[in-house]
């Protein structure tokens, strides 16, 4: 079971990031979330969502999902990109296992871009 994200639906509202931060810190903060909408290319309006799982980093891009196994070498011919090694020291997604009603990020996403599969 894991989190699935539709990068095209996302509106970069950051609700999931804040909810995940709350799940970690019991307060509102953004620094420890393992789900992060990528907002760094504002002028180009290119955005997606990154998720850190136990052994992989998922980049839900508008053009599709990319999964990088943590620790596996990247394809050297591929252009370096923002999803290759981010957030390595953050805790991985635990699917909010301590919560009866399931993952917070799913419940908070206003456009249903996140689901479990």
């Amino acid at each position: 079971m894991g989190i699935k994200i539709d990068g095209l639906l996302c509106t970069a509202c950051m609700a999931c990031e804040l909810a995940c931060g709350y799940h970690r810190d019991d307060a509102f903060a953004l620094l420890s979330s393992c789900i992060v909408p990528y907002r760094g290319r504002e002028k180009k309006n290119y955005l997606g969502v990154m998720l850190k799982e136990e052994d992989s980093l998922v980049a839900a891009r508008p053009e599709g999902i990319e999964i990088n196994r943590i620790g596996e070498e990247q394809d050297p011919d591929k252009e370096a990109d923002a999803s290759a090694k981010p957030m390595l020291l953050r805790e991985s997604c635990d699917l909010c296992e301590d919560l009866d009603d399931g993952p917070l990020c799913i419940r908070v996403c206003p456009v249903d871009a996140i689901s479990v599969e």
Binding site: Y22, A27, L104, V108, P110
Partner: peptide
Amino acid sequence: MGLLEIAEPEDFVEDCLALV
């Protein structure tokens, strides 16, 4: 990169989720 504490975190968040 601050942090905002919440007085009654669980109730507060549950109410927000219900609103969403």
